[in-house]
């Protein structure tokens, strides 16, 4: 292109043809990559879920995904049914139900705090809590995964469902540091109240939605 070409325009069909050719090459590349990586991605996601669930439900060996709806519970395959809540049922080596894990989320100090909690069927309480993702201030908000006193809240957090099976008997609530009196309360970390409250709210919202639907059908999970 040594001389300036001013009036020459490319015919439309050539443009369409070139774009079509480029799009085809790109399409083939993307489909190829998708096919090649689909299996490892699914495997990675499964391992990640398992690891998170095993952390909140010690002793578990396998995990199955379920959906709880107004009418009952069913294994989750494909899309989530209308109004369904996802949860994980964890079994130990012998195939005995170890507990239920589910995710809760609430707005923290700088972004949504997503937590996974483990529910024990016998004591009807939460026996473990892990953080799935958060962007809380390092050194302050992120104490929710290191503060031993705070984690003690989740060794037996009461989440019994009321007798009408409509909601939790007592809403899970984060209270000011040092004022926890009831087993359904969470003692906040001093100086990280906002993040502590987010954890409480996330668990409460999720448990209020899930447990009333799940508890009447819990026997179906036992093999």
């Amino acid at each position: 292109m040594s001389e300036p070409v001013i009036h020459k325009t490319t015919p439309a069909n050539k443009m369409v043809l070139t774009m079509g050719l480029v799009a085809t090459i790109c399409g083939v590349l993307i489909v190829g990559a998708f096919e090649g990586t689909q299996a490892p991605i699914a495997e990675n996601k499964r391992i990640m879920v398992e690891r998170a669930v095993f952390k909140v439900l010690p002793g578990a060996a396998t995990v199955r995904e379920y959906a709880a709806t107004a009418t009952g519970i069913q294994p989750l395959t494909g899309a989530m049914p209308e109004g369904g809540v996802k949860f994980y049922a964890a079994y130990d080596q012998a195939g005995v139900l170890k507990g239920i894990a589910a995710e809760g989320a609430a707005k923290g100090y700088s972004d949504t705090v997503r937590v996974l909690y483990g529910y024990d069927v016998q004591c009807q309480c939460i026996i473990g809590m892990g953080v799935v993702s958060m962007r809380e201030t390092p050194g302050i908000g992120d104490k929710i995964i290191t503060d031993q006193a705070f984690l003690k809240n989740f060794e037996a957090l009461d989440v019994r469902v009321n007798t009408e099976m409509t909601a939790l008997a007592n809403a899970v609530k984060t209270v000011k540091h040092g004022t926890k009196t009831n087993p359904w309360q969470i003692d906040a970390i001093a100086g990280a109240t906002i993040t502590s409250k987010a954890v409480g709210r996330g668990i409460n919202e999720s448990a209020q939605k899930l447990l009333p639907k799940l508890v009447p059908h819990i026997a179906e999970l036992k093999p």
Binding site: L29, I30, A33, F34, G36, T37, I41, N44, K45, M48
Partner: peptide
């Protein structure tokens, strides 16, 4: 492509 590859490599 990179998006898929990274997901396959490390979530």
């Amino acid at each position: 492509l990179v998006d898929y590859l990274i997901q396959a490599g490390s979530l």
